[in-house]
Design a protein around this nucleic acid. Sequence first.
DNA 1: CTTGACCCTGTAGCGGCTCCAGGGTTTGCA
DNA 2: TGCAAACCCTGGAGCCGCTACAGGGTCAAG
Lengths: 145, 145
Amino acid sequence: MRIGELARRADCPVETVRYYEKEGLLAAPRRSGSNYRDYGAAHLERLAFIRRCRALDMSLPEIRALLEAIERPSAHCAPVDALLDEHIGHVAARIADLTALKQELDAIRAHCAGRRPASACGIVETLSRPAARLARRSSHVRGAK
Amino acid sequence: MRIGELARRADCPVETVRYYEKEGLLAAPRRSGSNYRDYGAAHLERLAFIRRCRALDMSLPEIRALLEAIERPSAHCAPVDALLDEHIGHVAARIADLTALKQELDAIRAHCAGRRPASACGIVETLSRPAARLARRSSHVRGAK
DNA sequence: CTTGACCCTGTAGCGGCTCCAGGGTTTGCA
DNA sequence: TGCAAACCCTGGAGCCGCTACAGGGTCAAG
């Protein structure tokens, strides 16, 4: 099948398929006479796996490591479990960070009822002060927008 | 004061100060004879404000809008409140997303006790299946790493 | 007079795409 | 058979918010 069909079936933009190939996550398929990529069922399975992991917010290096752990001939569960545990840790940490952040934002928001000039606004005031610092963790999982 | 001192006092890398200037968040200061940037107290206040907003995970466009809302001569609280409410919404949405994500990850993790070859691992199995799709919102707030 | 700390500009890189320009190929229909 | 639309190709730029160079200039202490 050609790239368009593969992409449709895996629910993934065509450009992203080419990007995964360039990044070495998806094997380069053979080419047709007109230099079109020609994929088989194995490619689709693999791409679907990658997309599923991305939907779970794993980074591409994490997914790469996961694929390698699975494809080693003598492959055992343990490394897979470890990778997943680590990722769950990232997600949990990010939730904790954002929860603390939201509390702080709610507290700031409570400083104003919207009926004053900005010069007297409690929010502007609060944002100008040094304020308690959140201990931010580092994590690959993205923030809030 | 020169850029190094400003940066130290606002707890912000020097390169980031120059970046904010390039992005129009921080006014360009006057220059010394040797072309060094020369900042005053107002610059420090503004930079500290920006850093505080960044610590609250606001995007630079959000901060820009906030600064504009505050500095309009006839400035009123309402737009500031609205901006903050919107940002709080982003954070809340991201927390909800990540919480659903974590539940899914926990469920997947429960499929394996680590004593089997990867070919028989419930995790690998689960990651290969189509699976219920999370409805992902769009938000500027970052994910989980 | 030299060493080191500081400053300058400009450019490239990070992740994970996304989009564009500028081409070639295939497909369906008149 | 001709033609348009839909598909495919490569390569490069852009998104965000920095961060890290390279390759220079300036300044203060010893």
